[in-house]
Design a protein around this nucleic acid. Structure first.
Lengths: 202, 202
DNA sequence: CCCTTAGGTGATCAAACGATCAACAAGCGC
DNA sequence: GCGCTTGTTGATCGTTTGATCACCTAAGGG
C-alpha cells in the first residue's frame, strides 16, 4: 500500500521538530483553549509527551511561544502609510485597510487564540488592542475628519465600526455560525454606511 | 469585633443552599471558564467541595444548571411587539430595543459565560444566536425596510449593526478595556449612522 | 564497520482532579 | 430535654495532569 511512501524520519532537525510541535500547539490550543492537555497535544503533533519538554521548558513556556507566533508580525506597518495617503479617497482607504486587516486576522487560529487569551485576562491582548486603537483607529478617525471637513469621529465611533467588522470573524470562528465566504462585500457596505451616516455627511 | 454579627447558619434550606452554590458557580465559571476546579468553586461559595455533589450529580450537571440560569428568561418576548409597533418612528424603536437588549446582556457573567460557551462549541450558543437572528434581527430588518420604502437591509447588514453594538460589551467584559460607563450614547449614535447610511436614506 | 553524539521513548513521580462515603452534628417534632 | 432526620464534613478513592528520569537507538564522522 504505502510501499512508495517516504520513510518516516524518526530523528528530525531540532529546529524542524520545534516548528512541528509549535504548529500543532497553535492549532490545538486554538481549538480547545490553554487548558488542553500536553498529552493530547503530543498525540496531535505525532510525538511523545516527553519530547515536548525537550523543546519547551514547561507548558507555560510553550503557550508563550504560541502567543509570540500568533501575535508577532500580524500588523503590517505599511497599513498606516496607506491610511494616511490623502491622494486617495477616504472610503477606498478604509476599505483597503479593512480588507488587509481582516485578511490578516480572520483565521481560525488567530481569532480563537485571541479570544481565549482575552478571557484569560492576558496582558498581551490589551496591549495589542491598545496598539490597534492608537496606531490604526485614531489615524483613521483623523483621516475621516480631514475628508469630512474637520468633523472627526470619536474613538467610540471608530470602535463601533471596528467591532461591526470584527464580529464577522467572531461569528464564523468562535460561534461557528454561517457567514459569507468572502466578507469583502459586507465590509464594504459597512464602511459605506458608516461614512454615509456620519453627521454632516452628504 | 463581630459580637453583634448574625450567627452563621450552618444548615441551610436545600433550596437556599442550591441557590447559593449556583450563584457562586455562575460568578466563578464566568471568571475562569468551565475548566475551573470544583475545589476553588467550593471555597468561593463558602462550602466544602463534597457538598457540591449533594446538590449536583456531577460537574457537567452543575455547568448545565449554570447555562440554564444564564440563558433562561434573558430575552423578553415583549421586545418583538415593541419592535413591530409602527406607530412609533423606526429609529426610536431600534434605540429602545438595543437599550433593553444591552441592559439584559451587558453583565460580566452573561458576556463571559456566553463567550466561554461559544469557544467550547456549545450548541445552546448557536441556538440562542439563531433565535436572535430570526426573532429579533429579521423583524428589525423588516421594520427598517417598511420605514424606508421597501429597501430592506440584508441580514448581513443587521449582523453588522448588532456586532458593532455587542462589541462594546466584548471590549468591557472580555478584554477589560475602558468603555463608556453608559453605552447608551454610543449605541444611539451607531443606530443613527446605520439608518442614515443606508442606501436610499435622506 | 564501529563508536560517539544526540534525538527520542517508556516508565514513573508528585500533585491536582472529579467523585464517593462513612461519620458527624445542627435543628425540628414530640 | 431527647431522639430522629438530614444537611454537612473530613478523609479518601481512582484517574489525570505536568514534569522528570534512565535508557534506547538512529544517524553521521572517522
Amino acid at each position: 500500500m504505502d510501499g512508495n511512501a517516504l520513510p518516516v524520519r524518526r530523528r528530525l532537525d531540532p529546529e524542524e521538530r520545534r516548528e512541528q510541535i509549535l504548529n500543532a500547539a497553535v492549532a490545538w490550543f486554538a481549538e480547545v483553549g490553554f487548558a488542553g492537555t500536553t498529552r493530547d497535544l503530543a498525540r496531535r503533533a505525532g510525538v511523545t509527551q516527553a519530547l515536548l519538554y525537550k523543546y519547551f521548558a514547561s507548558k507555560a513556556d510553550l503557550t508563550e511561544a504560541v502567543f509570540e507566533r500568533v501575535y508577532l508580525g500580524r500588523l503590517d506597518p505599511q497599513w498606516l502609510y496607506d491610511i494616511r495617503d490623502r491622494g486617495k479617497p477616504i472610503q477606498g482607504r478604509l476599505t483597503r485597510f479593512y480588507r488587509q486587516y481582516t485578511g490578516a486576522i480572520f483565521t481560525y487560529e488567530w481569532m480563537r487564540i485571541f479570544m481565549w487569551a482575552g478571557l484569560a485576562g492576558d496582558a498581551l491582548n490589551r496591549r495589542y488592542l491598545g496598539h490597534v486603537a492608537d496606531r490604526l483607529l485614531a489615524p483613521l478617525a483623523e483621516e475621516i475628519g480631514a475628508a469630512h471637513g474637520g468633523q472627526q469621529p470619536a474613538m467610540e465611533d471608530m470602535w463601533n465600526l471596528h467591532g461591526g467588522i470584527v464580529y464577522i470573524g467572531i461569528r464564523r470562528f468562535i460561534y461557528h455560525l454561517p457567514t459569507p465566504d468572502d466578507p469583502a462585500a459586507a465590509i464594504e457596505a459597512a464602511i459605506a454606511r458608516f461614512l454615509g451616516g456620519l453627521p454632516g455627511a452628504a
